[in-house]
Design a protein around this nucleic acid. Structure first.
Lengths: 341, 341
DNA sequence: CTGAAAGCGCTTACAG
DNA sequence: CTGAAAGCGCTTACAG
């Protein structure tokens, strides 16, 4: 394995000069630089990042913690994060973090505590105070994309507004009997994503002088297709009064709900209007109206913040206003129509 | 940042002893070990992996290269890989590798060439000879899960057999006019996944004395839902004779095809039987018959091979027979029925 | 512009 | 069972 000393010897300079020539830090005579570069190329020299990290204290690695990798939204984010990180010459260390428990503790207490990452990007995770404290203690930048947690830079769409907009769209179409399929924990934790979307729903309803008629109109389930399907069957299969429109907390839930409607012989949008949140890649094909967001771009933006906190990039580049929510837009397709009277 | 010298001082031992006590390598008196452990816990000491790597030459990190993270199959694999790697105390460095080109070269020439990973796990990538050579040169284990490439340990289902089985299932139900939606490049590269599945299809057809009637019966498209939708419209919208059954190279393609059929007023399975490959999480909900595989388990198995090549785990643990294909099974649901006569 | 030297934080023969 | 010393492969003040 070629070391920098080999390069130095071949180029007839000291290790220090070779290092400077290759890294671009410090002044080196152009002719010398050329000789060093040729020597390096000749023996296929690649610097050992570990050795460099040891002295610089920087690993050029960002740790990404994420609750699912096989869910559309997170996959998109991850792809945007990876692309942006690699373009900046950074490695991406991936950590899948589930529900609180031993495995999760291990990620925080062991993997993230070591000096292996320069920063942590937390995607869609509800960070507990102790976890955030443990990260802060390391004195490394922590950036949150979605999820919840206080004290770190956080980027997110306005989930409450998204829920409100989706609901208002349905109200605007003349619906009044509107149900909501919320994500798990929506009622218990009003500040996490499911809770915020649910609040938007409730606020829009009460602003319209409508209160969901009892608990039956807000069901909680996993924000996945099966979650939407199961809770959809529960909602639509009930012999009582049926809603004419449903706002689901995610597009995947909406797909499940549509499937459930199909099974029960309920036509969308004839008998039932459906709106989701996300802008899932399948939404267009299914004609799903949705409040769209761009997870890939969000991942790229979040990495941009991480990089700036690490002092990379144009010096003067200011941090984006993390107070401003990430963009969303209403995309109306065929799943929502004016209520027939 | 606490260093091992701090631990040593606090425990009243040398750095060498502290290192041995903490790592468990080499003999240390039980009482000494206890004192060192308490000292470490007291100051929250965590060893620097970079420093350790420098001397041991091992990074306890595996590089994973993958062509998509936001496709169901790959997401599942990645989750299985991540879980298994973390359980073994390894970090996962993620590299998204696309079509040949500058970005892809950068991953091989820069990121993977450094001494940062102990092994490389390539998931579903068709590795070129030069790329494989570049990895081999590093003298690190390389394991392939799916995809193609020669000279490295490779785990995969038998894609040809999967294509054959799917086709035979349709033949068995009395279908003879059967079309195939293949993945991109199937005809050009018979040894990569799309090509192997296509070969299985063609072999089963000719064994039954049937030849697909011209090119129209084998279309190529992206192995995604939109790919299946577009090529499905092309196939089913054609005014000529229509197939009574279709074998799609993936479940996601099948979903797209079913959507296309729906749009054209063709009933599944009444007018058209459909079978896919994968065992996608949505397959059950859509009633899709499929040749199921378990990507999560495959990822875990592949990591097992990597770990054994790295000398981890029970010594005597033999390598699994990489000649034997990974398991698949036919799951019959409502999308395939006997041809009405 | 260049070099000699120190040092980043560990682990591992080598002695004892 | 334990310690002193060397060294992994770099980078960075410090001189010159």
């Amino acid at each position: 394995m070629a070391a920098i000393s080999d390069v130095a010897r071949l180029a007839g300079v000291s290790k220090a000069t070779a290092s400077r020539a290759l890294s671009g830090r410090g002044h080196v005579a152009p002719a010398t630089r050329l000789r060093v570069e040729q020597a390096a190329a000749q023996i296929g020299y690649v610097a050992s990042p570990d050795a460099a990290s040891l002295v610089t204290g920087r690993t050029k690695t960002v740790g990404v913690i994420i609750p699912h990798v096989n869910r559309w939204f997170y996959g998109e984010v991850l792809e945007g994060v990876e692309r942006t990180l690699l373009a900046a010459g950074y490695d991406l260390m991936l950590y899948h973090v589930g529900a609180p428990g031993a495995e999760r503790d291990r990620v925080f207490d062991y993997f993230l505590k070591r000096k292996r990452v320069d920063a942590v990007l937390s995607v869609g995770i509800d960070l507990e105070a102790s976890e955030l404290a443990s990260l802060d203690q390391r004195d490394k930048p922590v950036v949150l994309l979605g999820g919840s947690g206080t004290g770190a830079a956080r980027l997110a769409i306005d989930d409450r507004a998204a829920g409100q907009l989706a609901t208002e769209h349905l109200l605007h179409l003349g619906h009044s009997r509107i149900a909501h399929l919320a994500g798990t924990g929506a009622a218990a934790n009003p500040h996490a994503v499911p809770g915020a979307r649910r609040r938007g729903f409730l606020e829009a309803m009460s602003a319209a002088g409508l209160t969901p008629a009892g608990r039956a109109d807000v069901l909680e389930a996993e924000m996945s297709l099966p979650g939407g399907y199961e809770s959809g069957l529960q909602l639509l299969g009930h012999p009582g009064r049926r809603p004419t429109a449903v706002f689901t907390a995610s597009d995947e839930m909406a797909f499940g709900l549509m499937r459930a409607a199909d099974r029960l012989g309920i036509a969308v949008p004839g008998d039932l209007s459906v709106i989701g949140v996300d802008g899932h890649e399948y939404a267009e094909l299914f004609g799903l109206t949705t409040v769209e967001q761009d997870p890939g771009a969000q991942g790229a933006t979040a990495v941009g913040v991480v990089l700036r906190l690490l002092g990379e990039g144009p010096d003067a580049d200011p941090l984006p206003d993390s107070g401003a929510p990430l963009p969303t837009r209403l995309v109306v397709r065929s799943s929502t129509v004016r209520l027939a009277r």
